[in-house]
């Protein structure tokens, strides 16, 4: 048997002994990457003293072996609820943020914000990372800090998926001060980014200006945008939205019809045309459209205006 295999066997035998990180130290520092990787797994299986164990997972993020680093990144996510961050943990993570390996930087930034160990200034620095996965983590970090300024910067990222994440993030913050950034995305070249911005208006509130843009977007060629526009209009009281929403309730895409029916529901008592549209929707070929129309008409019967 090879020496590393013998070490792995010895390690596996330790699992049921609930070994401490100190007892695993020789394995965690082994020359063989498979031994180091297994040692991390054993530490996570048998851990009891998390205070002691926590720094090891962060340290392994800068391991020379890629498989070990990947295991460390997985375990940092998996163990988030039980890890006990201390200065050593933070130090290792900070070192890892300047690693050459994008996966490592991503895991480090993720662990830092998830443990609330980072600031807006740090995040803004990480936002210049060349790797979009890292920048996506940064966007989540901004959200955790309700940092609308950071999100506004991310909303101008060259990569569509970062702009999408930023728009979603502004929705998650749910603050009307984010509306300006979302409105600014109305002519984004990426249809999914436009859709994300409109969807987020459903969380931040949809001012009349924004509603005007959403109404125009109901005629977008992409169904995702039309669906998101209808979703945004749920939050608007603009009168001009009613007719376009009635048209959207007969859209060729089922998700657009569903969103339009939901947006028409609060307008039922004010506009007689809405009732007709909802009655038509009750006979829709799609069960969800039928159901939301039915729920709307039934709830009106319960609470006549």
């Amino acid at each position: 048997m090879s020496a590393p295999n013998a070490r792995i066997l010895a390690l596996l035998e330790l699992v049921d002994e609930a070994p401490s990180a100190q007892e695993l130290e020789p394995y965690l520092q082994s020359d063989d990457p498979e031994v180091r990787r297994t040692a991390l797994a054993v530490l996570s299986e048998a851990g009891d003293d998390w205070e002691e164990a926590t720094p090891y997972f962060a340290a392994a993020l800068t391991d020379p072996d890629e498989a070990v680093r990947e295991r460390a990144a997985d375990l940092l996510r998996e163990l988030r609820e039980v890890l006990r961050p201390g200065p050593e943990f933070v130090e290792h993570l900070q070192v890892a943020t300047s690693s050459d390996d994008a996966g490592t930087r991503c895991a480090a930034v993720g662990a830092l914000w998830r443990h609330r160990l980072t600031s807006s200034a740090d995040l803004l620095r990480y936002l210049s990372d060349p790797d979009p996965h890292v920048r996506r983590e940064v966007v989540l970090g901004f959200v955790s800090l309700d940092d609308l300024d950071g999100l506004a910067v991310a909303a101008r990222d060259p990569e569509p998926r970062i702009r999408i994440a930023a728009a979603r993030g502004i929705g998650a913050v749910g603050d009307p001060r984010g509306i300006a950034t979302l409105v600014g995305m109305h002519d984004d070249g990426d249809h999914l980014a436009r859709a994300a911005a409109l969807n987020a208006l459903g969380e931040t509130g949809c001012t009349d200006d924004a509603a005007g843009l959403a109404v125009s977007a109901l005629a977008d060629t992409a169904w995702e945008v039309r669906q998101a526009a209808a979703t945004a209009l749920i939050e608007s009281t603009a009168d001009g939205a009613v007719e376009p929403l009635i048209v959207a309730a007969a859209d060729q895409n089922l998700d657009v019809r569903k969103a339009a029916v939901k947006a028409l529901t609060p307008r039922l008592s004010q506009h007689p045309d809405v009732r007709e549209a909802l009655l038509r929707a009750q006979g829709d070929a799609d069960a969800d459209v039928r159901a939301f129309a039915r729920i709307a008409l039934e709830s009106e019967a319960d609470f006549p205006s």
């Binding site: 998996e78 609820e81 989540l140 993030g169």
Partner: peptide, 14 residues
Amino acid sequence: LESYGVKFEKDEHD
């Protein structure tokens, strides 16, 4: 369960 380490989905605001 969370205190034991089971992961439930939480948003960015925990």
